[in-house]
Computed example of a mutant assay.
Amino acid sequence: MVVSALLKFLYPPPASVVITAMSVINVLAMGNAGWMEAKGKNMQYSKLLRADDDAAKEKPRVSGKVGMVAVYTPAFLAGAFSLIAFPLRDLRFTLLRAAITTHFFKRLVEVLFVHKLSAMMETKAMFAISTGYFLSSAAMIYTQQLTLQLQEPSIDLKYIGVSLFLVGIGGNFYHHFLLSKLRNKGEKQYKIPQGGLFSVVICPHYLFEIIGFWGISCISQTIFSVCVSLSTTFYLLGRSYATRRWYQSKFEDFPKDVRALIPFIF
């Protein structure tokens, strides 16, 4: 009953042991990573970097800008290559590849021209995040290619997915832009974000990133893409909780009614 209901929304799982294993590993690994974030064992980048920990200082680091460019470039290239390498005949396949490419291109543009990155990034975190993004993006594209000979789900979500993706990418960019305006040129100290949804959650950029990834899942309608969105959601729930806790520790006037990720709830 449940399986038949799900198959109205999703393609059947591909006959690929690798993709099936990646789906399970992705959700479990990112769920655990989100739990570790909430417990205080954070991925070492941005404001949650252990800047004053002597043991952590000995670990190899790169600048925030270099690290973030390295994080997003492989996934962007995977998406861009797929647009060039494969024909554009199937609309869903084209929309998926375009969404993945656009998402990571936007992130690169933000790193290069919008963000004011002052913190360093551990190379271990850089390689882990970069590898995860690349493998997830390449596997989503490959999984979608495997569906080209299959009958489409009876309920078509790709246009809803495009709408969610545009809302997600737009809201994410807007709040990243607000963050970039907090500090004047040369300033490095952190401030409590203002404007947009920052009045109700401390990580609205994460909220819109989650919306964008669920948009990609609706465009794709594969089990693997749903697993990617679930894993992203789990991780950013934990990361946002850790971020709110960090702001509370740094600012005595941090508003108590500002949540981590979901307005008025979490």
Rank of each mutant, 00 (worst) to 15 (best):
G168D: 03
T243D: 05
K8V: 07
E209N: 05
F105H: 10
K124N: 12
F266M: 09
I262N: 10
A33I: 03
A98E: 10
Y247I: 00
A119F: 09
A21Y: 11
S217I: 02
F127W: 11
K158L: 15
G195Q: 10
E37W: 13
S154K: 12
A139T: 15
P13S: 12
P60R: 10
G161M: 09
T102W: 15
L178R: 05
L164V: 03
E122H: 05
S118A: 12
V69P: 02
F76E: 01
A33G: 06
P263G: 12
L182I: 10
A139D: 05
N32M: 09
V18Y: 15
T222H: 04
A51F: 04
L236R: 03
E122P: 02
S240Q: 02
F198D: 07
V258Q: 12
M30N: 11
T232Q: 07
A15H: 03
P153R: 06
G64H: 01
I84T: 07
S163L: 15
K158R: 14
Y206T: 00
L10N: 07
K106Y: 03
I19D: 06
V71W: 02
L49A: 11
F9V: 09
F9E: 08
G186A: 10
A242N: 00
D156T: 02
V228E: 02
K191A: 14
S136L: 07
A29L: 05
V111W: 01
A138K: 15
L179P: 01
E187G: 13
H176R: 05
V200D: 07
T143D: 14
L7F: 11
P12L: 09
R92Y: 11
A98W: 15
F127T: 12
I216Q: 03
F234C: 13
M36P: 00
G79P: 01
N172I: 01
P14R: 03
A70S: 09
I160E: 08
I223A: 12
